[in-house]
Design a protein around this nucleic acid. Structure first.
Length: 185
DNA sequence: CCTCAGTAGTGCC
DNA sequence: GGCACTACTGAGG
């Protein structure tokens, strides 16, 4: 039985081989939560990043896809994603390209099942995926999420109810939750 | 308020 | 394989 770890290491090595650099196109749009960078690979939406500085966003994208060639030109996609972020009630029909280990995929799937307007704790997510003691690993998987808001890692809180971390700023996490709470879907 | 151990997945060496 | 990281948690000062 081959471990997931070995598999992902293999594909990472293949990617690093760079015989055919992957192309990722992106664009930046504005939203009430700041700038939104949306990026797509051949497979689908592969990154949604939040921030205030376009250069920082691009750098973050490049860091997440070190071996990829970046190209601008996804204005429509970015606008679509920004619209989704403004009103989470609507659905986003773009295909997703979620990259991660089996464990991360499982966690992200669980996150997507948290209804808008509600929250869950890291412990609850760990229980839901059947790995009750992997609480900390769950948090790590949340932190590794590349699709802000689309994979709603902002809906995960500490078990005491407090907000802990958010990759794109704790204040932004607070705003997202406040908006979703008020939207009462 | 604080520290500490237990814990599991990941990344880097 | 090892080792040092965590967006955690509950117990104990």
């Amino acid at each position: 039985m081959q471990s997931d770890r070995a598999i992902s290491a293999k594909s990472a090595a293949r990617r690093q081989g760079q015989r055919d650099p992957e192309k990722i196109s992106f664009a930046i749009a504005e939203s009430s939560f700041g700038l939104v960078l949306a990026a797509r690979s051949a497979k689908g939406l592969c990154a949604v990043l939040l921030g205030d500085n376009p250069d920082h966003l691009m750098r973050e994208l490049q860091q997440r896809f070190p071996a990829a060639v970046l190209a601008e030109g996804e204005g429509e996609l970015a606008a679509e994603v920004a619209a989704f972020i403004e009103s989470p009630s609507r659905s986003l029909d773009a295909p997703l390209d979620l990259r991660g280990t089996r464990f991360q995929q499982t966690v992200w799937q669980a996150l997507r099942e948290i209804p808008s307007g509600t929250t869950a704790s890291y412990t609850e997510i760990a229980l839901r995926i059947g790995q009750p003691s992997a609480v900390r690993a769950v948090a790590q998987a949340c932190a590794a999420n590349a699709l802000a808001v689309i994979v709603p890692c902002h809906r995960v809180l500490r078990s005491d109810g407090k907000l802990s971390g958010y990759r794109w700023g704790i204040e932004r996490k607070r705003l997202l939750l406040a908006k979703e709470a008020g939207a009462r879907l």
